[in-house]
């Protein structure tokens, strides 16, 4: 594999978010079911279903994670955050039974990331959620790793389909390792190659010319 000089800011690990990471910004854009515990005057226009001037106390609305994190306070009741259904007990039982059969891309696609972020909000079920996320990851990791190490020169889209974003990143690094190893085995590791960036630019130019 070619050495890449563009290295994006990596996403944060666990409960931490990385300020400059594009992945984390998109993760924190995921919406959570919330309920307001206080009124927000003058902001009624954000709620499309109502025509009031204010957002009254007790309104159920969806808020992106970043806003919920900003408004949430342990002591004062500004908003309360509900669990999205994939982290509730019903789904936790499903993950507990066999994590491998679940389509985490459809359920997530930031299942692990969002799950870790949910721990910021005080919730009685937090320990169970953390445990469930960890067990799900452990249960699925073996399969992700195996398939990334054994699919050489194959169409991987079917394998990737059901993976969460974190698992996709792991799958990709596994594939990079596999490809680099195969190159080395064939004595091609020292071959100089065109930069990926340049070839991709050229591909795009050709398609632009054709259209």
């Amino acid at each position: 594999m070619d050495t890449q000089s563009y290295m994006p800011v990596p996403p944060g690990v666990g409960m931490e978010e990385n300020f400059f990471s594009l992945d984390d910004i998109l993760l924190s854009h995921e919406r959570l079911p919330c309920r307001t515990d206080t009124a927000f005057p003058k902001l009624g226009f954000l709620e499309k279903s109502s025509e009031t001037h204010d957002i009254p106390e007790g309104t159920k609305m969806e808020m992106p994670l970043w806003l919920a994190k900003g408004l949430y306070e342990r002591k004062r009741h500004v908003i309360s955050v509900d669990l999205p259904k994939v982290y509730r007990e019903g789904w936790r039982t499903v993950f507990g039974a066999d994590a491998n059969v679940v389509d985490l891309h459809k359920m997530g696609p930031y299942y692990y990331g969002l799950g870790s972020q949910m721990l910021h909000f005080e919730n009685a079920e937090n320990p169970e959620i953390a445990q469930s996320i960890l067990q799900t990851f452990i249960g699925r990791f073996r399969r992700t790793m195996d398939s990334s190490q054994n699919a050489y020169n194959e169409d991987t889209s079917a394998l990737l389909e059901r993976l969460d974003f974190l698992e996709r990143a792991l799958f990709r690094s596994g594939q990079n390792g596999l490809n680099a190893f195969q190159l080395w085995e064939r004595g091609r590791a020292s071959q100089l190659t065109a930069s990926n960036l340049v070839t991709n630019y050229r591909k795009r130019k050709i398609t632009e010319l054709q259209s």
Binding site: T38, A39, F40, P41, K42, L43, W66, L67, G70, L71, V78
Partner: peptide, 10 residues
């Protein structure tokens, strides 16, 4: 008004 101010600040 304070919750609204905080909302906008976020």
């Amino acid at each position: 008004l304070i919750p609204t101010v905080k909302f906008r600040h976020c």
